[in-house]
């Protein structure tokens, strides 16, 4: 990989090393379960050479595959001891497994692309304007962490002191709560801060929800907006 001022992105020719290998296997009309490794390695390296002379910028993945091929080739050359034959598997399996897996994925992608795609082959009536635009017209401000913590405290106060004994060991993890919230936000693109905590009786539950909201904000899954007059905080799914 030389540093030159002109380079072609290799993706347009072969997306990755797997595509190049499949191309070679097909071109030579060989069985994927019985790959002539020496031949394929030689041709693979020829392609790399050829691409480099054309100043095609090779991704590191291509070099890594070349190393894997060379390693498999050398393992094939090693004498196989008769007592080991049962335990030692064909070194080419290291290549065959990911290749067949990759072919399955290509097939899956192809099947997906042949479905009746919404917006391309089939259409639905266009939905009316979403309520979000309504909210956008009223004066709102983006809020920061401290306003959020204030709002959270109010909710925590409402839940009551921590003297409730929690015998229920079935507490929910932050990850699960995020998944639940995402499900709700997919149904309904915006929720008020209070709505997020509805039906949550215990302090633990409320705290888990709050931490989940913070994590979601950090992952940029949601936006917070506060209405200037009412002070109501809304969460929007991005």
């Amino acid at each position: 990989m030389q540093s030159t001022d002109y380079a072609v992105r290799v993706e347009h020719i072969f997306e990755g090393p797997m595509d190049l290998l499949i191309h070679l296997i097909r071109k030579n009309e060989v069985d994927i379960y019985d790959i002539p490794v020496a031949l394929i390695t030689e041709q693979y390296l020829q392609y790399l050479d050829w691409m480099q002379t054309l100043n095609i910028d090779l991704a590191g993945d291509f070099i890594l595959m070349a190393a894997t091929l060379a390693q498999i080739k050398s393992r094939m050359l090693l004498p196989v001891h008769s007592q080991e034959t049962e335990t030692e598997e064909d070194p080419r399996l290291e290549l065959v497994r990911p290749l067949t897996e990759y072919l399955r994925i290509k097939e899956a992608a192809e099947m997906l692309s042949q479905r009746n795609l919404l917006g391309e082959h089939t259409f639905v009536r266009q939905p009316e304007a979403l309520p979000r635009t309504e909210v956008d017209e009223t004066p709102v401000v983006r809020i920061g962490l401290f306003e959020l913590i204030d709002a959270f405290r109010q909710i925590l106060d409402r839940v009551g002191p921590a003297h409730q004994v929690n015998l229920d060991a079935d507490t929910i993890s932050i990850k699960d709560r995020i998944a639940q919230l995402v499900d709700r936000l997919e149904q309904q693109p915006s929720l008020t801060f209070d709505e997020l905590f509805q039906g949550q009786g215990s302090r633990t539950e409320v705290i888990v929800t709050f931490l989940a909201i913070l994590e979601m904000a950090r992952l940029e899954l949601i936006d917070f907006v506060q209405h200037v007059e009412t002070g109501i905080i809304r969460i929007f799914y991005r």
């Binding site: 499949i22 097909r26 009309e29 994927i32 067949t100 072919l103 097939e107 899956a108 192809e110």
Partner: peptide, 14 residues
């Protein structure tokens, strides 16, 4: 998904 038995020419990456 079907099992991939062999590489059919030009069937895998159309």
């Amino acid at each position: 998904l079907k099992e991939i038995r062999e590489l059919v020419p030009d069937a895998a990456s159309p």
